[in-house]
């Protein structure tokens, strides 16, 4: 079955993307080998370092780097960080991440829309991280985004799909890949998001803090694949509430 994830014209087989929060060589290796990641996020501010520490060296050459603009507090700063990433040789992909809140690290949609437009016009493949709001998502699409990345719950919280209903609206209404980012703590949550129609899942903490990293990475891979298959299979008769009437309500109609 040919089921590729397509972002900005680039094709990927894997629907798991490694987030950038907590890095280690072991995590990156496991994300690629066991979870099958083909895209790895990289915080530019962490890459802004001397040779001995450079996490760019940890990342295998055959994966696509997704530098993020974490540390940016407005569109202007995000644009500067994205351009620095390109100078550092991180390619054209960029995850726009703009936060004006140091406590919950919630994204600022308004500034993100502005940055998306500037960077898309500058030739970047822009993947904006956002709070799931339909109007903002539409503005990001019009600004040239290549995908939309709504948060499931606050970063690092492992709280799962707290914004489920709103992500579903984005999946239903936006004609770009919806990649669920932040808050996915367990494979079952990743599976649920995929079953809803999400195009991919981004996670980091859930793997980084697992007792057995390779096993958790492979669990995520299986869960994402299962969710994707279920979505493509189109779930049948699943009643979430109430009961089905055995006699049709419309049986009285004559012609």
């Amino acid at each position: 079955m040919d089921d590729k994830l397509i972002i900005g014209g680039h094709e990927f087989n894997s629907r798991f993307i490694l987030g950038s929060g907590k890095y280690s060589l072991e995590l990156i290796e496991s994300a690629v080998k066991d979870a099958g990641a083909e895209i790895i996020t990289l915080a530019v501010r962490r890459a802004n370092t001397k040779d001995q520490e450079n996490i760019l060296d940890y990342i295998p050459k055959n994966v696509t780097l997704l530098p993020n603009t974490s540390g940016a507090r407005n569109a202007q700063e995000a644009v500067r960080i994205a351009r620095l990433a390109r100078e550092l040789g991180c390619g054209n992909f960029v995850k726009v991440e703009i936060m004006r809140d140091s406590k919950y690290l919630l994204p600022d949609n308004t500034e993100t829309i502005k940055a998306t437009e500037i960077l898309a016009n500058d030739g970047f493949v822009v993947m904006p991280y956002m709070y799931p709001d339909l109007n903002a998502a539409r503005d990001m699409v019009n600004a040239g985004a290549a995908s939309i990345m709504p948060l499931a719950s606050p970063i690092g919280s492992n709280k799962g799909l707290a914004t489920r209903e709103f992500i579903q609206i984005l999946i239903d209404e936006i004609d770009l890949p919806i990649i669920v980012d932040a808050g996915i703590g367990r494979p079952s949550q990743a599976c649920e998001a995929m079953e809803m129609g999400a195009a991919a899942i981004m996670a980091n903490t859930a793997l980084a803090t697992a007792g057995n990293l390779p096993l958790m990475a492979s669990a995520f891979r299986a869960a994402i694949e299962a969710g994707r298959k279920a979505y493509l299979a189109k779930p049948g008769r699943v009643l979430s509430r109430g009961a089905a009437a055995s006699d049709p309500l419309t049986g009285f109609l004559r012609d």
Binding site: R45, N48, E53
Partner: peptide
Amino acid sequence: LQPVLNDYLYV
């Protein structure tokens, strides 16, 4: 643990 020397950009 992981020693980190920098996680910062002056913007």
